[in-house]
Nucleic acid binder design. Structure first.
Lengths: 141, 141
DNA sequence: CTAATTGCTACAGTCACTGTAGGTTCAAGG
DNA sequence: CCTTGAACCTACAGTGACTGTAGCAATTAG
């Protein structure tokens, strides 16, 4: 008999909440696990690996549909690696795009903040800049 | 008579969808505008300014509750600038935190991708790394 | 005058969970 | 054996910030 763990321990091992594990089962990316006589879920080592895979991918920002694709690739080891590689590249591009976007925001926020001299709202640069797009550093997004 | 514009033009001017404008009214951060006899919304210059303010703040990543606060500050020009400044600083911190996080993700994705040699799934590094936390560059997040 | 566009309300759906209510099961201590 | 308390169960509502849809009514251009 291999070790079977209840949902609480499975969630803890994967670093997520109990509800999240049930949610993954509900949307069909985690298989329905074995149950006790009392109807409580018991997860096998394989189940835990799959859950860990999902959580790790989520932490890397992969959306669930992409993870679904990755899992079905992982389930079929004879398939080419290309598809998985493409998904990872797509995700990397997304991350790079988001970083670029956030760095522009950072610039603009810093610009806004340094111009605020700390008087009353009437001459607050933060409020003013927000109300006037022409004061943007980089123009329209 | 000042220029009053229908919702479509207001949305276009602010760079958002018509539904978004109605949504802002619904949650109470845009006032109910004047209507035509036929019950269609007409926006004044003041309304447009407020909408632009909201959109600009949203583009900078401010959440709506923060924008609500900024607006009530902006509505009362005698108040101190401090509160607005604090909200902007908070937002800047958030952005910086997100950039840091995304840069770590970028590292890990790149690491994962460069190790993928392009064979079959059986020895795909992308799949493997996702399934095994110990291969992370930076350990647990 | 008519057709196309734009507008209206009300509501459901998105993503990836998270929280809640009201109950049941399990493991440990007495 | 019994009880207590933690962990579990289902089912459903809520989050944020919109977005989409259905089924109409009003407006505008030709």
């Amino acid at each position: 008999m291999t070790e079977l763990v209840p949902i609480g321990l499975a969630a803890k091992a994967a670093g997520c909440k109990v509800q999240t594990v049930r949610y993954y089962e509900q949307i069909g990316i985690l298989p329905e696990p074995v149950r006790t006589q009392g109807n409580q879920r018991l997860y096998s080592e394989t189940d835990l690996q799959r859950l860990t895979f999902i959580r790790h991918a989520r932490e890397l920002g992969f959306p669930l549909p992409a993870i679904r694709d990755l899992l079905s690739l992982a389930d079929d080891p004879k398939q080419s690696c290309e598809a998985a590689d493409a998904i990872a590249h797509e995700q990397l591009e997304q991350v790079v795009r988001r970083i670029t976007h956030l760095q522009a925001l950072k610039q603009e926020l810093e610009h806004m903040i340094t111009r605020c001299s700390g008087g009353s709202i009437a001459d607050c640069r933060v409020i003013e800049v927000l109300g006037d797009h022409s004061e943007c550093i980089s123009g329209r997004h």
